Simulated scan of single mutants.
Amino acid sequence: MLIRLVRMTFQDDKLPDFHQIFDSSKEQIRSFPGCEHLELLRDWDHPNVRITYSLWESPDALENYRQSDLFRTTWAATKALFAERAVAYSMEQLEEV
């Protein structure tokens, strides 16, 4: 299982636009082959920061999504709203306590 976190900092006045994009694409992303889970989080200390937390069955599944038209169009619209460059992390769980 691949864990993917993407931290996005938005221009303050562009947050409603981002939420509209996310609302219109979240079901398609979640139902994309290999996507096991999807969450949208808000940074507690930085109200203009959103983080997506997703679980993918494999690195190939994530890469297939990243090469899809769904990702290309969604990401193009989303990144136009950024105040700074997004930061993404791909991880695997080693241990749960």
Rank of each mutant, 00 (worst) to 15 (best):
V6K: 12
R7F: 05
M8T: 00
M8I: 02
T9F: 09
T9V: 04
T9G: 10
T9S: 08
F10A: 04
Q11H: 05
D12Q: 10
D12A: 15
D13A: 08
D13K: 05
D13L: 10
K14Q: 02
K14M: 06
L15E: 12
L15G: 14
L15S: 03
L15N: 03
P16Y: 09
P16S: 05
D17R: 14
D17A: 11
D17I: 01
F18S: 02
F18P: 00
F18K: 02
F18Y: 09
H19G: 09
Q20C: 10
Q20N: 09
Q20R: 13
Q20K: 10
I21D: 01
I21A: 11
F22V: 01
D23G: 08
S24G: 04
S24F: 10
S25N: 13
S25T: 12
K26D: 11
K26P: 01
E27A: 09
E27Y: 03
E27I: 15
E27N: 11
E27Q: 15
Q28R: 13
Q28F: 10
Q28L: 14
R30S: 15
R30Q: 14
S31E: 06
P33M: 11
P33A: 15
P33G: 00
G34I: 05
G34L: 14
C35Y: 05
C35T: 05
C35A: 06
H37R: 15
H37Y: 15
H37F: 06
H37M: 10
L38I: 00
E39Q: 14
E39T: 08
L40Y: 02
L40V: 03
L40D: 02
L40N: 03
L40K: 03
L41K: 01
L41H: 05
R42V: 07
R42I: 07
R42C: 04
R42H: 04
D43M: 01
W44N: 14
W44H: 11
D45I: 01
D45L: 09
H46L: 15
H46P: 10
H46M: 13
P47K: 15
P47R: 13
P47D: 00
N48W: 12
N48H: 04
N48D: 13
N48V: 08
V49K: 09
R50A: 01
R50C: 07
I51C: 01
I51E: 03
I51H: 01
T52F: 15
T52S: 09
Y53K: 05
Y53D: 12
S54A: 02
S54D: 06
L55D: 08
W56Q: 00
W56N: 03
E57Y: 12
S58N: 04
P59Q: 14
P59C: 07
L62R: 02
E63Q: 14
E63S: 08
N64F: 14
N64A: 08
N64E: 11
N64M: 02
N64H: 15
R66L: 11
R66H: 06
R66V: 01
Q67L: 07
D69E: 09
D69R: 13
D69W: 00
L70P: 03
L70T: 15
L70K: 12
L70Q: 06
L70H: 02
L70G: 05
F71M: 04
F71V: 08
R72C: 05
T73Y: 09
T73H: 10
T74G: 00
W75C: 12
A76V: 12
A76E: 01
A77R: 11
T78W: 03
K79S: 12
A80Y: 04
A80Q: 14
A80I: 10
L81M: 04
L81Y: 00
L81W: 12
F82C: 07
F82I: 13
F82P: 11
A83S: 12
A83Q: 06
